[in-house]
Amino acid sequence: MARMKFLCDADRCIECNACVTACKNEHEVPWGINRRRVVTLNDGKPGERSISMACMHCTDAPCAAVCPVNCFYTTADAVVLHSKDLCIGCGYCFYACPFGAPQYPRVGNFGSRGKMDKCTFCAGGPEADGSKEEYAKYGANRLAEGKLPLCAEMCSTKSLLAGDGEIIAQIYKERVVKRGYGSGAWGWKTAYRESIAS
């Protein structure tokens, strides 16, 4: 079984936001919820870099550890998913998540923020693969169809890579060797406790 990961090659990302748009459209993500976003560091200064970030599907995921109702589960592909039927909208996963991935449909309607929503690695949720219910709650289940996350597929510069961790790490390493530089696999140290030597 693969160990699914995301990798954003910051030296290629041009902040075009195609990944964000692809995600929004594929899953009919409502206004105000941002499963994926592009963050620009050192904006306008030397060394500016943009990084596309969503849920990293962490090893020993912090969100799953703090959830008071245990609504997270990890698939055989190591994708971190959750059940909206179980979520009570407490907001704790957002306090623990290193990447700000969990999103809430409401800001604070007397303590009810609605069901948490986050990137599913295009792998849906606990409902039957490809069912209407699954689509309504979590969006498309591309993984079940043998496809990879649409954000990475649509990336105009192939900066954003999604897939088996070892394969995408290999692609990244080859790039670094070939072009002679790389600013590192962003978030890997935090999410997977490893970094790709560059």
Binding site: N34, R37, V39, L41, N42, I51, P98, G100, G187
Partner: peptide
């Protein structure tokens, strides 16, 4: 936290990585 700039209204999203989450966890 590592913060940058985002083009969406939710400015919380500008924080790329917040290691404090681990301490809180």
């Amino acid at each position: 936290a590592v913060s940058g700039r985002v083009t969406i209204p939710d400015q919380k999203a500008a924080t790329l990585i917040q290691p404090e989450g681990q301490v809180w966890r």
